[in-house]
Design a protein around this nucleic acid. Structure first.
Lengths: 293, 293
DNA sequence: TCGTCTTACGAGAAGCGTAAGAATT
DNA sequence: AATTCTTACGCTTCTCGTAAGACGA
């Protein structure tokens, strides 16, 4: 179970080809073949079927472990090196788009006012990447958003030893086009909308809603991306409904064709969490304190 | 960051000696020395100070990562092998002593009645070990107990991809000797007892209480072990107070010198959780279903 | 027949043990 | 002086690349 071999295995499985993996990793096909053979011999199992190259059931099982395992390995290495390198002057902050709401932006401004010499790079990324970037030390702090019950933590993929602190919780609204039959209501229940047309987005994954409010929630349109403005326009055009934090619909740039109606049941909030590894005392720790205060 | 070298590093750090680690791992001192040198060269950092052999700050940082990392590696290997080996007929159940309460024992009996061919081995172990045993496939199912707020999950150390299901929640009582000033009360608040003498036990770690009810809770006596009967006798003898699930004090074998007074604040319960990895359909999945029903 | 994976073989690197050296107590 | 870690050196093992072979499409 050498990580080296594991990396090769993951690459071969992803590319579906020994030769493609060889090219990607800078080896010859022969070396890849031998590495896979060594891994299979070590476990005593066939991990890949050849022609076509596809993981066997055992291989699929191993793949589920291999990704997080290799991530943690890189994270450990990066963390040790980073801790030894000492504090950086330019902080990197990885954040999902909706995590940077008014409250967070305000606190960030407060921190920068208190520490004028603080340089910050804000990197926008997807929800799964926040944890990985922080774990690997690519980012000093991470901000992730999601939908959760009040005071409940987000269920973020585990990427290693990491501290998560709640930063903000905010009311959720159902975003719908102005002409929608229920657009005039003052509050909505999710179970009244199980048969409505819904957008499948990263902000509001429908699988999450089915967990919380029962089956249903047919997918009208899937949006792969994380631009809030795009989502709002899709809603306005009647492609489907979605949940958004209230503030996302009250920033002025919203087309008048979109309405937001507060969600009365289930009790859900839009939650933002701050992620970080062990922070050396210094500007990163100060910023973390300000952001979570 | 070869896991091989990581294992050596962990062993050297634990034993505080290259030669002792060599003996434990079956290498020569020379090989250990070379392995540590290779790891340090790879990271470009000194991980151990010599004479005496102690981890440097960077080494301590690495140690925090290495243990969980190696555990996950073993767990992944075991999981893949176990999945490929197919279902076992003898199930192994790892459980902390207090996790096997009347409810759990009853459900286990029910499962065995429904499946007469079900062979079960019940292995008693500590709270940290449950997760490790399940992760490594040494146990098919795990039962862990602990103190938590109602409906809150236990904070168990992360040992890999694992499902945890609540099995039972039960009232907590303050166990105290019959002659104790507050033994006659019908309910107690924890903050009235911050200055009392407390036992430090695995069932009721005082650090946990300080988290929940503020500072205080001086350690009168520390008991390293997990025998409930022993704890009860220590309480009866006036060594200190502790929290126990109500049923542990109503099983008949309790010395009459011990009283249990319900805990009124904070709202805490004794919770038992079932841990398991991905279960192949079969007797293990059936048992898990019965235990958590 | 072509593309792709496997196998054979040799060169180089890596890892371990023996044994001698160095440093600390 | 004794203990313990480090270094030097040779041997073995491992791993990779080249090249030829086998297997399917």
């Amino acid at each position: 179970m050498d990580p080296h071999l594991l990396t090769t295995f993951v690459t071969v499985a992803r590319r579906g080809s020994f030769s493609a993996a060889a090219a990607e990793l800078g080896y010859t096909q022969s070396a890849i073949s031998q590495q896979i053979a060594a891994l299979e011999a070590d476990l005593g199992l066939a991990l890949l079927s050849r022609r076509p190259v596809e993981p066997t059931p055992a291989g699929r099982r191993l793949l589920e472990h291999a990704g997080p395992l290799l991530l943690r390995l890189r994270a450990a290495r990066a963390d040790v090196l980073r801790a030894a390198a000492g504090p950086r002057h330019r902080l990197r902050l990885a954040a999902t788009p909706l995590a940077v709401n008014a409250a967070v932006a305000g606190r960030l401004a407060r921190a920068r006012a208190a520490q004028p010499r603080l340089d910050v790079t804000l990197v926008s990324c997807g929800r799964e990447q926040v944890g990985a970037l922080v774990a690997e030390g690519e980012a000093d702090l991470g901000l992730a958003d999601g939908i959760a019950a009040p005071s409940d933590p987000l269920r973020l993929p585990d990427t290693g030893p990491m501290t998560t602190v709640a930063v903000s919780e905010e009311e959720l609204v159902v975003a719908l086009p102005a002409g929608h039959p229920v657009a005039g209501r003052t509050a909505l229940r999710l179970d009244d909308l199980v048969d409505a047309r819904w957008l499948q987005t990263e902000v509001c994954p429908l699988a999450r809603l089915r967990d919380l409010a029962g089956d249903g929630f047919p997918v009208a349109l899937e949006y792969r991306g994380d631009d809030v403005h795009t989502v709002i326009n899709l809603v306005a055009a009647g492609h489907g409904l979605t949940l958004l934090p209230a503030s996302a619909l009250s920033t002025g740039s919203v087309p008048p064709a979109t309405r937001g109606v507060p969600l009365a049941w289930p009790r859900l909030v839009h939650r933002v969490e701050l992620l970080h590894g062990a922070l050396p005392p210094g500007s990163a720790a100060d910023l973390a304190r300000t952001l979570s205060s």
